[in-house]
Nucleic acid binder design. Sequence first.
DNA 1: CGGGCTTTTGAGCCAAATCAAAAATAGTGG
DNA 2: CCACTATTTTTGATTTGGCTCAAAAGCCCG
Lengths: 239, 239
Amino acid sequence: MNPLVLKLEHGARLSEGEKILLEDLVGGAVSIAARQDLISEGDAPDHVHVVLKGFACRYKLLADGGRQIMAWLVPGDFCDLQVSILGEMDHSIATLTPSTIGFVPRDRLSALAANSPGLTRALWWATLVDESVLGEWLVSMGRRPAAQRIAHMFCEVHRRLEAVGLAPNATFDFPLSQADLADSAGLSAVHVNRVVQQLRETRQIVWRRRVLQVLDPLALEAFAGFDPNYLHLTATRAA
Amino acid sequence: MNPLVLKLEHGARLSEGEKILLEDLVGGAVSIAARQDLISEGDAPDHVHVVLKGFACRYKLLADGGRQIMAWLVPGDFCDLQVSILGEMDHSIATLTPSTIGFVPRDRLSALAANSPGLTRALWWATLVDESVLGEWLVSMGRRPAAQRIAHMFCEVHRRLEAVGLAPNATFDFPLSQADLADSAGLSAVHVNRVVQQLRETRQIVWRRRVLQVLDPLALEAFAGFDPNYLHLTATRAA
DNA sequence: CGGGCTTTTGAGCCAAATCAAAAATAGTGG
DNA sequence: CCACTATTTTTGATTTGGCTCAAAAGCCCG
């Protein structure tokens, strides 16, 4: 089953019929190289994009050249669902690794949603979960020290990938550079490096060759003050 | 016209008929004292709450007692629209000043929305704007130094209140304590105090007796790196 | 094998935190 | 209207977490 269905199935509790509808939704898909801008601030694309494979992020650039990453987009996540309502993107999207991106014609999506309250609900659910995640990032940024902030990030990615079956054994592809991580956590790359070393030394994680393993998920979650509620993943399974 | 209608009218571009529908939406309203929890994490209230008058905030508490404020809620803002989709609140809401809160029975809202695509759209619009604002807060938190962060906050509140006719002359009630401001900006109260003094000394703001005046809005916005796009206020007017 | 990232290390610095206390304001009841 | 409290703001002194700059070491890939 594709990760989009897998994600929405869990969160929005879809019926079988709705799952089939969704399964059928993604028209085309393309492979995209790493570090490509997919959608830029100000765009109003007429397809909705979905990450099917790979790792992307939402981000904004500041006048001084600084970058703030606002979300990770993993398989199953919509990139730009909000555009049809808000009119245009108020941030940009870029891939971080080679990715497969699915396209859904916007008219097709609205037509289907108009006839399926369950699908509408699922789409709304997806945007609300995005918001909830953003809120938790804000909490991290505002009130958690660097080590907990990074650890919290690892916990989140772990749980989200697990929900779409991509983190067996708490082990998963984590292809970000420490600089990317820094831009998401509001820290400098140098400091991220020192924190990561500390998490390695305390045997909380193993991270090498772009693969991250959380050695004791519950322990790391306790350390980070991580409470998975905000992800609104009502069910989990290893697919 | 009530601030709810005023806000949604601007952003979601409602027709006259839809405005009347909305105007009629708020069943009851009550006055609530300052510093009261309105809705707590975990709640699933069966009324949707709207701020009609006053100032409230979304927030989360951390294990160590720290508080992170995630949004200001000003007249016209919904408090808990997301509950019907997500199931329960993942954060809390509290008033900061004596406020008037309107109630809409949740069934009534869904019934109306089911028959009015425009209203559905307006509600979705409102939650997406919340998300967009949250994103900009994250950027502030991650990448803007303290003075710009506070200034950015002032700019945002100014523009949002202006949009519902509550900031004539760039002057508006701003009843927060510096500690509240600190909890929203991820700073200590002491540091907020020093920054506020600096903004006063440089003649960017006057803030006394709970009234804030932005002396030169464009100058302050330039200083803060504030771009109002993220608020998605397509129109403005002094009501 | 060489060139470009990415990670790592070191040294010095600074923005913002903490702690503690005083001054100013705002409420409250008599 | 005033005295009495509680809260908020302000100031000062000190500490610190995380930043910057700079260079070295390690990796990946053609």
